[in-house]
Design a protein around this nucleic acid. Structure first.
Lengths: 334, 334
DNA sequence: CTGAAAGCGCTTACAG
DNA sequence: CTGAAAGCGCTTACAG
């Protein structure tokens, strides 16, 4: 199958490449008859422009990259998908870039800004740490989602996130209200300033208010995968079998824990209650259905895209938006 | 942040752009001292080449597209991911393209072949029907995975798949061996020549051998999502409550069915047995763990990439490879 | 080992 | 409304 270029089309249609380019880009300044002739030829040849050539000259509106670490995380994936859904009709075009779990998404951003002349970035999930220093001299606007970038030193960094401290508190409060006192927390690193640290801090707030002491050995750091949580949970419950409830910092972790408990002969929620975080689809079908903190995926996605476009096209200043999450009561807590 | 071009680097290093291009492409014919100087300048400027410009001239090894329909399907996703893992060290570069559930992956292939000069295609999942006719005059090699392309009319179409008929039979046999006779089948369209039709045919083989009649009303066509299967299952079991086992043509469907049964007060596998298909990760954690037909994801991925490269680079003829699937007995069948 | 020059397929002032 | 020409950032014969 021959691959036609704009030149071939021009020759066949008896016009100049300039004219073909014009109809290709739907510019108004082309005679109707000419336009139709060119369009006919393009259709016959099934002409599709070469994206490389176009990108070389005209950076195709603006190119925006949605970057997520790990292809496996269902919550992050649903966020990216929702963003793409809010992308139609925009003059900018979007690409989604997955980087390895162990890779550096900020390095990836720097690379993309050169390699593909990406003009704006949305980071889905993750955290801002020293690695982010490479973003210092990048003048492209960026928005961080699910974490706050308010304290970040980058001039053009915006963010959209939920109040993790309040929701961490709400999750813990749910467990407390159900009468639990020997409660474990499974999650990410609890120090620092990211969402996990805040969820932890919120949980501590609730505990403190309730006058319930926290047994430090009941904080368990785990990988954010089902199998990681499964292994960790087995070890933990062998050591601390009198634990009656768990606050899991993601639904994926919650499911791994529940599976482990089930294998150890404990029933959820009859013997142990588990509350998750994120509100992924699977949580509605898992047995038991997950009680969880549901992040407003669509709101986060919409706001992120909006803010980025505002910064990119209207040169508006970065904003930091807190969206409302909510507790969803289902079956895994009693 | 200034974006440097090869020209800037050349000027700063006091050499020609040709030389910069050479060190950029790690060609051997550059004086060591020159190479080091250029590399130093590139590092200082954090130079990264413009992919568009490169792609315009040198089609970057060959570009291969892995196309999958739907971003949500965990089985297809794991296949794509496994393919990418077999991609390192190859001279070709790969991109993965997701098309909408309702979109046409073959149109997408045609578009990609022009737009990005894609030279080879791997279709993950899906089916070959009239829509595929647009591939007729494409001379790029392509491999279809999980379905056979042996009867397809395209000269350069290869395929890698499991013996769906045999495995459909094995799934049904498992249910039969457990003593079930009132068995339902949930899946895709049962006519035609694709994997679903074959699984259905295989199930019929087993039934026939066992002398167990199949009640036509127990064939249920459903969407391949948990929520689709959930709705369908609720309706079905209200109509046919005496059904004691289900062969689900995907694990996702199986989980939707099990959730529905649970909500109807039926226990799996105590009251109803369910066998799935695919062998996705979640099946190992779901409660009950899924008994299923496990597709050899890694084998399929490796063979697919291998065959495509053989066709593309050594101009070998297309092959059609059947890989071994296996029955994995877990907890959902009794 | 190195460089000048042509060209990849497109877009976009500029001139008419 | 239309076209000739320059140029985007790179690669690659070709000549030296």
């Amino acid at each position: 199958m021959k691959i036609y270029t704009i030149k071939d089309i021009a020759r066949k249609a008896g016009v100049s490449v300039t004219t073909v380019s014009r109809v290709l880009n739907k510019r108004p300044d082309v005679n109707q008859a000419t336009r139709e002739k060119v369009e006919r030829v393009m259709a016959e040849c099934r002409f599709v422009g070469n994206a490389n050539a176009r990108g070389l000259k005209q950076p195709d509106g603006d190119l925006i990259a949605i970057i997520l670490r790990g292809r496996e995380n269902p919550f992050l994936n649903s966020l990216a998908e929702a963003m793409l859904a809010h992308t139609h009709g925009l003059k900018a075009s979007f690409l989604t870039e997955f980087v390895d779990e162990q890779a550096d998404e900020f390095q990836a951003a720097v690379r993309l800004s050169h390699e593909k002349r990406v003009k704006g970035f949305i980071f889905v999930g993750g955290r801002i740490d020293e690695r982010a220093d490479v973003l210092q001299d990048m003048d492209a606007p960026m928005v961080f989602t699910t974490i706050s970038a308010e304290k970040a030193a980058f001039p053009r960094a915006a963010s959209v996130y939920i109040d993790d401290r309040a929701m961490g508190r709400a999750a813990m409060q749910t467990l407390l209200d159900a009468g639990h006192t020997r409660i474990a927390i499974f999650g990410g690193i609890r120090v620092g300033d990211d969402g996990f640290a805040k969820r932890y801090a919120g949980a501590m707030d609730a505990l403190k208010d309730a006058g319930v002491p926290f047994d430090e050995e009941r904080f368990v750091q785990t990988r954010f995968s089902m199998s990681g949580a499964y292994d960790t949970a087995q070890a933990f419950f062998s050591a601390k079998p009198d634990t009656t409830a768990v606050f899991a910092m993601s639904d994926t972790i919650a499911m791994g824990i529940i599976r482990a408990l089930t294998d150890m002969g404990k029933s959820v929620p009859a013997d142990v209650s588990v509350i998750g975080y994120d509100g992924i689809e699977m949580g509605k079908f898992f047995i038991p259905r997950l009680t969880t903190i549901e992040q407003p995926v669509d709101d986060i996605a919409r706001e992120s895209v909006q803010i980025l476009m505002d910064m990119l096209e209207d040169n508006k200043p970065p904003r930091h938006i807190v969206v409302d999450a909510k507790l969803v009561t289902r079956e895994s807590v009693r």
